[in-house]
């Protein structure tokens, strides 16, 4: 299959639910595997995915999700979120899907660049040392557009 050689994707990850973070990570990885340049811009709750203390505790929210088998009335009860996250992590393990931390490592090794949003960092009072070492830089939305020049932008 012939592909244009200079393809590039810019992925914006603004949420940190398992169901919201993985698509961004997988898409970036698949892009690298297909020889496409890729970078991810983590903003708002997405910062959790690249935060040292949070990355191993990503959850999944079933409340208000009409596709989930759990009724919203139940999904809002305490413990339900942890239960759902546990179940989802288990099925990911069965597929031998890498953990979020591993995915970040793989991405960095594969040459995908990871960026954190400056404004979100200030809002959540995060310091650059709170982030995973794979994060290349803390940038602004304007910098994002400079980086994304000529790229296809994906928002997850």
């Amino acid at each position: 299959m012939t592909q244009s050689t200079d393809r590039k994707v810019a992925i914006i990850c603004s949420k940190a639910g398992l169901d919201e973070a993985y698509p961004a990570l997988i898409l970036a990885n698949a892009a690298r595997q297909s020889g496409i340049e890729a970078f991810i811009f983590f903003t708002f709750w997405g910062l959790d995915v690249i935060t040292e203390k949070k990355v191993d505790h990503l959850h999944v929210n079933m409340a208000g999700n009409p596709a989930s088998p759990m009724p919203t009335m139940l999904a809002g009860l305490p413990g339900m979120e942890a239960f759902a996250a546990h179940r989802m992590k288990k099925s990911m393990e069965e597929l031998s899907l890498p953990s979020a931390r591993e995915m970040i490592e793989i991405l960095a090794d594969a040459g995908a660049e990871l960026y954190a949003c400056e404004l979100a960092m200030q809002m959540f009072k995060r310091k650059p040392e709170d982030l995973l070492p794979q994060v290349k830089e803390v940038i602004t939305a304007g910098d994002f557009y400079d980086l994304a020049d000529g790229a296809q932008i994906i928002f997850t």
Partner: peptide
């Protein structure tokens, strides 16, 4: 090998 090695050896789309 590590992922990094693979991308170093076969820079463009290593798997394929």
């Amino acid at each position: 090998v590590t992922t990094k090695d693979l991308y170093a050896l076969f820079p463009k789309a290593p798997g394929r």
